[in-house]
Nucleic acid binder design. Structure first.
Lengths: 111, 111
DNA sequence: GTTTCATATTGACGCATTTCGATTTGATGC
DNA sequence: GCATCAAATCGAAATGCGTCAATATGAAAC
């Protein structure tokens, strides 16, 4: 379950449309907070909160320079969850989560 | 924003570790609800609720057969969000979300 | 050092989510 | 028909989330 928790934290961060859009914006390169804020109708504190969530799950990196904070996408984290999605779409012969499949009458009938 | 909402609904569904695990279980093939329930310490009503969320976002398909309901992964939906992740990790020259980048003093200084 | 500006933090407010026990629905078997 | 079983739905409680205004922090400019 620890493994799933690791992934789900990132998925949860992307589970807000505004955060998904922010991540998409950052895919073109680093941006400062004020630039991101321009694109949304939200308060500065709300944006700051969203950026914190994106940073805490590892999706986004923050770089402070003087007054400004520059945010960039952490592609390693994106690749991690991309790998998870690849794993679940690849064909598998057998699977550990199926080990007790015989205990289920319904599944027996189906097989 | 509509586009991001479409993606974020799926991400949100994966944003719960139990649901991420269920999706992983289904990656090996169709399973009935009772089989999934065996693997978790949760009530039957709670599982039913999670399955509804997974179905409503399009990640999982339900097939009813008599008393039993069989769930399977909808790989098309997984491939959709995989494509989004591929897009944001690919190198881009320019990006529509950057169109007003000059308005930001901070960004100007940085460039 | 005081002002100004960008960002973070705090506290509060509704709203959504997770969870459960209890009940309902709908199919199967007697 | 009646009992049984799988799954869905309902109602309620606890927790979490998105949002804002107000305030705090901390760097730059004067």
């Amino acid at each position: 379950m620890e493994e799933y928790l690791k992934y789900s934290r990132v998925f949860k961060a992307l589970g807000d449309p505004k955060r998904a859009m922010i991540v998409d914006m950052l895919s073109c390169g680093e941006l400062c907070a004020c630039m991101i804020l321009q694109k949304f109708e939200m308060s500065q504190s709300t944006l700051s909160h969203h950026m914190k969530i994106l940073c805490e799950c590892g999706l986004v990196k923050a770089r402070e320079q003087g007054k400004w904070t520059y945010y960039s996408l952490n592609k390693d984290t994106v690749n991690n969850i991309k790998q998870f999605l690849c794993d679940i779409t690849s064909d598998k012969e057998n699977c550990i989560c199926r080990e007790n499949a015989d205990n289920c009458k319904g599944c027996d009938e189906y097989e």
